[in-house]
Design a protein around this nucleic acid. Structure first.
Ligand code: ZN
Ligand code: ZN
Lengths: 658, 658
DNA sequence: CAGGCATGCCTG
DNA sequence: CAGGCATGCCTG
């Protein structure tokens, strides 16, 4: 974790925040850490070997230092087990995940024997958070909406220019116009992908609610897709890795006399659908992509699917201007959206409502996008309601408890240090940092609120006698000082076979068959339907575990005749019943069969070794603080702090700027 | 249909309405007919051979006379194919269906070669409409609710004595108390079954919504059950025929010092759950049953599952008294409930709100219950919103269209009569009847509402020059005059084998296997798991088509080891894929294998003969009238009409009694 | 936990 | 289709 942070800081924060006016504050720093937590929750690792945990502080302020070990894969590609010949199609499928190429060298690193597995984790995070940055690109890609017919309360759809938001009725046909100032490469497509706008949900794929899926015509394809398009060339995608559902339509040059080409879109759930969108605002990300799957432009549009688009549009437009409660809530979304659209040289900004805005200059689009996303996440994360935060914490406590149960301390120094003075933290935090929590300013209208207790934080950092220079450069150096070595308790040298069909002499997991059938190829041969091997491979299904979540309707989408299809389905049901394909042993086994690594030496603690996989020790620095919401709001703001100048933490409420 | 009506009238209306003050009015009469429509929508028949239809009237008033032919089974038991040795368990499972033993001789009739198949249809109707009549029985069974802890808006549950309605929060633990004034037979159980109160939904089983089912812990049993009980001896049931879900708990004598025994119930969906209850009010029917499954007492309680029980209770209690719109709606439910609870010698009643109440004396509980149900249905049917009615009609038009497509007129007289003077109706309706629609009284507060057009009705009955004596005795005689003979176009003499395993020499439907596997027994032998034959039989699964809707979780409930269970499941999936077990041929074949009928001569029009099945011609007299809601409310009331005295129809609005 | 919003849907 | 209810849920 710290190493992730290190790389993160090195690559982005250090590299982009050289402007001394734009120092990252400690609270933002700690929020960065919290953000990265999510990496492990959607990551690629298959095994947790070890966990240890330190905990400091009391009820209100709690800091944990936790170390976990995972087996993760070297690259995303290898986790999927897709050979390089499939790369192109993979690009098509994974384009959503390449949008933040945080560390473009991760692919090469994976081929070496000592790659940095953390790079992948960041890649994974990018995977679950598609970029929503507006980016007209060199072809001047634009999305626009015509004037709707009527402005009644229950019009089928209406677009608010001021809100940059589309309001549409359930399943209504909504004409969306596309245009490029310059013709994109022939064969370019427009992809429409829905995402949740709120950071606490952004990683969750957007799908229809069970009610609507269940009641959908069973013969229909893509029942679970929220977005549909009437365009006859629409292609529906479901990302195998993230389960995100999207569609593409060909980019078409406007007809003669028109400057846009129009397609009719439908949204198949209400934004309020319980068990689905559940009142969470969504955006549609329209990406213009080359035939090879490269994103060359991106446009974003918030969408609300509701029963009364006219009414709700009016309410939001009205509510955004008056200074009442409603506006508070509404303006959040609006601001998020506006923020996303401020691409290009950012101009100096003045106050927006009661929040002062600072300017951050960023060099390079790539870094800019990363920071943009993080900025949004930081700001929005503060809006997570307290119960949600507490649940998150409880979940973590539970996870920690479980993981600690079957593990011992495995970092050499830690067990000696005991709970009070953990060396790694001590090394990183050379200076008592301000997490921004001890100097909570009282906002204008909030000064009468009870202030949070501040015990714990300063004491804690005093206690470990650390010192953290808020200069990013310094942080990086400090981080460099602790080089985390994955602990090696056992070394296995294995040779994986190149062909899946010759992998019988490997140590098999205890499954019923004498010859383990891990690959789709073997399985299809086994059920005497080898003719479909290519079809499965083309879709990226190489290993049986990839079929684990395949449903009958997924199978129906393949162009297989009824008889064979049902045979395949039955065989799959049988396979699932007899194989625990979720088991890490089987999965690792299956994966190892296709990795191109020939002979690697990898550290391993359990018997579950596998080439192409690397053991990783994750260090989690978790700082949990119970805050009242209003204060939380404020703390999470990305602001310039001054504790570096002053050398110590200001008392809370001392620094105010509004 | 007319014969059904005949029997209905003979058995119940005639038998119980001898009091000349309690004549059935023509609108009630026609509503009776409409009610019986439902028989065919959930019935047991497997084949429709023939349909013909007459239609009269214009847009607002439409009368259709439709004749359809079905193959239905002689008895419900035989449709299920359950041998008599299973009777006892069947009773347990079907107790919900026996509550209206309209014609208790139907079981014996089935054994003869010329049973009246119509009896079964009424039985079927009872199946889908469990009785909700309060019936303390000889043991004085009572259900009651303690005082809830608090009366706040969001209290977990609250019971309104005035509304006789329980308001409960989702999944809250709701203590329900049971008591008997006299100890019931040892081993008696209390069953809780939810039903929709509205007649248009009463036949739909009450289950949880897809959202809640989907999000339920996958390891949990009975995910789809709306009602749960914390009682450790709770047994959950899903009726194989109706899919109704219920549970039973043992009846327990109160602990010392207490006069009731308490169990904690939970309701697992909101009454408002989309895709589930969907804002439809429900009742819980508590039946006290002997160990043999005989219902010996019944109590009914309306339940509303909502987020704010306190608020909603208050709103309903308040809304029930003032005379505003709200009260109009609320009072319906209240009235329905109160109506149901008026068991015992009915006392003369005066006005209830703005509706006059008449008294009907009924001899015998059985008849009383039938009439009670019909009365409720009649009154409630009027509350079906107009779009629903229109949809119903459209559905029927579609059904009729489909059925007419592959059929010719088969009733001898009908094709000669043409569309204007259908003989059967003419014979039944010897006298111009008043359907109560031409003499709509204007209710006190409604006199300023536009009155419905009355054209069509009187003219129609004048035209056919009929004459209907409102004396039930006379009706019965009239009905007797038309004896409907099922048309015999072909006669097949078949002999069914006694044992399913020796049925190989029968003419097989075109299924893939050379030896058709229709019975669970054969199938289990075939997949080499004959050990489970008894287990399946015990649960009433005798034929493969009965397993058609079995899901993996159903299978999981059987006490079968993991290995065998998954083998059975896979085999079942395979079976379903290779057999069209829904096909009537297969089903009929499967059924015929177990019927005890030896050699019967049955009329048949298609090749789908089968012993134990009888061809039935159904005559549907459907009279559709478009009404404004307020008037509709009134029309459907069971009232005493006087047109028999006056000899013709009164002009609308001429008769008013408030 | 009371007040009140949010939002699908019903009514006229 | 506008007005307004119904009802889960959010806010203070
Ligand atoms: Zn939905
Ligand atoms: Zn539900």
């Amino acid at each position: 974790m710290i190493q992730i942070l290190h790389m993160f800081l090195q690559e982005h924060i250090y590299g982009t925040m050289a402007d001394p006016d734009s120092l990252i504050s400690q609270d933002t720093f700690s929020e960065l850490l919290a953000q990265l937590n999510d990496v492990t929750e959607n990551g690629n690792f298959t095994q947790v070997n070890d966990t240890t945990e330190f905990e400091f502080g009391g009820n209100e302020v709690k800091t944990t230092f936790q170390m976990e070990k995972y087996i993760i894969s070297g690259t995303g590609q290898e986790v999927l087990g897709i050979p390089t010949s499939q790369q192109q199609q993979l690009q098509q499928q994974q384009l959503l995940q390449q949008q933040i190429q945080v560390l473009p060298d991760s692919a090469t690193a994976a081929a070496s024997t000592s790659p940095s597995p953390y790079t992948q984790m960041i890649g994974t995070q990018a995977t679950s958070m598609p970029s929503n940055t507006e980016y007209p690109g060199q072809y001047g890609f634009e999305v626009c909406f015509g004037k709707q017919q009527k402005e009644t309360k229950s019009t089928t759809w209406t677009y608010s220019e001021s809100l940059k938001k589309l309001f549409a009725n359930l399943a209504s046909l909504c004409p969306i116009k596309f245009r490029c100032s310059k013709s994109p490469p022939p064969g370019s497509v427009i992809r429409a992908l829905p995402i949740y706008m709120q950071p606490e949900h952004i990683q969750e794929p957007v799908s229809r609610c069970p009610n609507h899926i269940t009641k959908e015509d069973p013969n229909r394809d893509h029942k679970s897709h929220l977005i549909r398009c009437e365009n006859p060339n629409t292609v529906y995608y479901t990302d195998q890795l993230t389960n995100r559902e999207s569609l593409t339509i060909p980019f078409e040059e406007p007809q003669a006399g028109s400057d846009t080409s129009v397609s009719l879109f439908q949204f198949m759930c209400y934004s309020s659908c319980v068990g689905g969108l559940n009142r969470r605002p969504i955006q549609i990300i329209f990406t213009l992509e080359t035939p090879m799957g490269h994103v060359i432009a991106r446009r974003v549009c918030e969408v609300r699917i509701c029963a009364c688009p006219g009414r709700d549009r009016k309410a939001e437009e009205d509510g955004a201007t008056p200074g009442n409660k409603k506006s508070n809530k509404k303006s959040k979304n609006v601001r998020v959206n506006q923020v996303v659209t401020t691409v290009g040289p950012p101009a100096k900004k003045r106050k927006l409502e009661d929040e002062e805005v600072f300017t951050l200059h960023v060099r390079g689009r790539e870094n800019y996008e990363v920071l943009l996303k993080l900025r949004d996440s930081l700001e929005l994360a503060s809006k997570v309601p307290q119960p949600e935060v507490e649940k998150h914490n409880r979940d973590y406590d539970e996870i920690n408890r479980r993981m600690t149960m079957n593990s011992q301390l495995s970092i050499p120094s830690s067990s000696q240090q005991g709970l009070s003075t953990p060396t790694p933290i001590n090394q990183v935090l050379d200076r008592p940092p301000s997490l921004g929590l001890d100097k909570l300013p009282s906002l204008p209208g909030l000064s009468n609120l009870p202030s949070i207790p501040s015990f714990g934080m300063s004491q804690f950092f005093d206690q470990i006698d650390g010192k953290l220079d808020a200069q990013p450069a310094k942080i990086t150096e400090d981080v460099h000082r602790i080089k985390i070595e994955p602990e090696v308790t056992e070394t296995n040298e294995v040779s994986s076979s190149q062909s899946p069909s010759t992998s019988t002499n490997q140590q098999s997991p205890p499954i019923t068959s004498t010859q383990p059938i891990d690959t789709v190829e073997m399985w299809l041969k086994n059920i005497e339907l080898p003719a479909y091997i290519d079809m499965f491979k083309t879709r990226g299904y190489n290993f049986m575990y990839q079929l684990e979540d395949m449903q009958q309707q997924d199978l129906d989408k393949l162009k297989i005749g009824e008889g064979h299809r049902s045979k395949i389905w039955r065989a799959l049901v049988e396979y699932k019943n007899t194989h625990d394909i979720k088991g890490s042993q089987t999965q690792a086994q299956g994966l190892s069969n296709s990795s191109n690594a020939s002979t690697v030496t990898i550290p391993s603690q359990s018997s579950g070794y596998c080439p192409g996989f690397y053991e990783v020790t994750r260090y989690t620095f978790k700082h949990t603080i119970s805050l009242r919401k209003d204060e939380h709001n404020y703390c999470a703001r990305m602001e310039v702090t001054e504790e570096d100048e002053q050398g110590n933490v200001k008392p809370k409420g001392a620094k105010m700027d509004t």
